[in-house]
Design a protein around this nucleic acid. Sequence first.
RNA 1: GCCCAGGUGGUGGAAUUGGUAGACACGCAGGUCUCAGAAGCCUGUGCCUAACAGCAUCCGGGUUCGAGUCCCGGCUUGGGCACCA
Length: 857
Amino acid sequence: MATKCKDYNFLEIEPHWQSFWDNNHSFRAERGTSKPKYYVLDMFPYPSGAGLHIGHPEGYTATDIVARYKRAKGFNVLHPMGWDAFGLPAEQHAVKTGTHPASNTQNNIVNFKRQIKALGFSYDWDREIDTTDPKYFRWTQWIFLQLFKRGLAYVDERPVWWCPELRTVLANEEVIDGKSEVGGFPVERRNLRQWVLRITAYAERLLADLKDVDWPDSTKRMQEAWIGRSEGAEVLFDLENRSLGQLRIFTTRPDTLFGCTYMVIAPEHPLVDALTVPAQKAAVEAYRKKAAGKSDLERTDLAKEKSGVFSGSYALNPVNGARVPIWVADYVLMGYGTGAIMAVPAHDERDYEFAQQYELPIVQVIEAAAGETKLPYVGDGRVINSGTYNGLPWPEAKKRITSDLATKGVGQPTVNYKLRDWLFSRQRYWGEPFPVVWVSETDYRRVAGRRRDDVPGEPVTFTSDGVTHFALPLPAAALPLELPDVQSYLPSGNGESPLANETTWLEIWFNAETGAAVPASQPRPAGEAWVRGRRETNTMPQWAGSCWYYLRFTDPSNQAAFASPEALRYWGVPDLYVGGAEHAVLHLLYARFWHKVLFDLGQVPQAEPFSKLFHQGIILGEDGEKMSKSRGNVVNPDAIIASHGTDTLRLYLMFLGPLEAMKPWNPNGIEGVHRFLQKVWRECLDREGAVNPKITADPAADSAELIRLLHETIKKVGEDIEGLRLNTAISQMMIFANALQKSPTVSRTTVLAFIQVLAPFAPHITEELWERLGQTGSILAAPWPQFDAAKLVADMVKLVFQVNGKHRGDQQVPVGLSEADAVKIAYENPKVAPFVAGKALKRVVYVPGRILNIVVG
RNA sequence: GCCCAGGUGGUGGAAUUGGUAGACACGCAGGUCUCAGAAGCCUGUGCCUAACAGCAUCCGGGUUCGAGUCCCGGCUUGGGCACCA
């Protein structure tokens, strides 16, 4: 039932249709249908206390238009929404107020949901998910257990930001210029026990499979760069002091081995002490201390100035036996390759700079083709000063030298990646607890055997104070492992999360077979399977929940699995995934990694999670700056909905410019699209709200031109939605509305078809008009109008005349005009004639229906 | 420093494979309706011209009958990476 309002009262119309959709579950994805599926997904938001930002509805409107269009095209559409609700702000709020982060999070979700619903998006709210819901994170923990048993999770000491004043670990974004964001206290790097996921084991596939996905090139390139594959060789250099063995280095340029004039090892390299001669001991120690004091940031910040110190030792070049000095310098990183390099200053900028500074020799071994002599030279060329390899193009020399080294057993081809293993733990309360209990080695040996399928081949351990602890997973049946209520959300102070203070939760008797637990303060229950354990106090990072949520949407309430095989087979992965480019690397890489692990386990049928990806651009403030509270240029969607309605807001967000572009918010333009909707309303209904008398049942009421324009509009809007060119689709509808206004009469079918193509963009007003124009039932049920290609062709076309490439006029001409006739018409055209009169015709370029260029001399 | 994407009227932006630059809007000006206003409607609106012409897509070259679009060099804005050997 439509409303009864006389004029375009969006404040009445919009809530009316929103509750209509709600009550009818209009957007519920169907089950057991023979329709083809279409899965369109938004990156789900973190429900912040600030509420919805204008950037959220931008992407959501685009996907909503696609979802509504695809439904009209006969697809069974899955268009879900949920909450990435673990996160730091809720925890900080809890620390401040003492209230449980869950309650704050739920309040924020309620607010977010209200705002999103007010925008009229066609989400299937029956499938809403929340990453903090134990029914959800049960499966996040379950997937972690799969990684764990495959040996893809381990524990290691890793440097994290530590603030001594706040006695807590800080995230990168909480550290600003070496100070804590809160309070401005100094922070330092401290090694703490961390869970790490072995994403590097998937580096090659994460790189290779990028070719199979339809993603923006820039995003693919970013991931490629992040993975950072490079091919080269590891080479063994004998040490002059034979008792020390050999030094292993990685190089991408084995062809420049003859140009190696010194070696560099990282200050953290295990051989530093052994290689340092007594005379250099003090200098090396001082240097190493200085390097350790620098944060990563400082180390890179000070990149302009190279520094290092001579160890006093020498290595022997395997290709020519040359004696090469070994330096210690922090421009070589322990974390990449072998932490040691051969320096070839003639052909590497960093080595060149270092050699200049410490007056080390420089030997050129690649000759530029075109007499280029400036060093360092990193371009193409042939090998010189390299014995029997002289004269070879360098890629050829690289192959030969690498294989010759391999033959002699002093080298092998190697591939290295910049990608590091993923630091997967946080010293926080508000995250998924790890379903792991630490037990003694004896207990582990005793019980792990009965859980052979659940534990990795190599036990996960860590050692502290001389005691080695062994990680025993909870059985899957014991999940979820929920967060205990805590007295205080303040960090424990020793680098562990607030969970470390919850003794009854933490220190337990653990039944290794059932996962049952009782506090360790109580007597040990009877039975073989009970062991003394301590729970893991770390929690998972926010990425965990977002790594697989798109799978849960296919079957969100399943209790027996993260999703059923049938749901995964039918819905598969999203056909379209839309979200900000700020997630180009981390979220999208982590999710791909988890997906591939699940694929290897036979849990999902596809190797890639997001076949087609699109990034919406950022909407800037009116002043062209990023929107921020402090600048006071934030646009609140609620205010626009109140003043102009959500149909106007949706339309305007799309009309602002290309979806992918970064664009400033322009408050004036919103009137334009609002007027357009009012015009559409007026063309359909008169001042009393009755059908506009110009609309008749007679198909002949439409001019040929209006019919042609209608079909052009149906075609263009459909194509533009498919290509996410929503701004030009709206332009086309405006053109049609202008023509509609100028038509003295129009057929009802034409108006209805137009209302239908507008419906995905402005769903409320079109529902209203659909019914007011006499249709029964929702416009949602109407199939997308077909355009008739025959209606698109005109008999006459405008032909543009050029003389010597300059525009000199145009004229309507019949379609299929011959070149000779076209030239004749042009010569007779009064605008063209003066420019060709009395001149010799040299050439004619004729593009029928488009252009005629007459070249005269 | 390296990689990527942009730069078009007063403004947001349009322009198949190279084929009318400025669609559609905003703004502005004039008109119409009105007692008056608002809304709506009509006309105009890149620059320079009285007009014809001329000049115009960041700048400079080039290819072409024809370049916003292709090539070379530069400037500039935004994003990413940053001693990864």
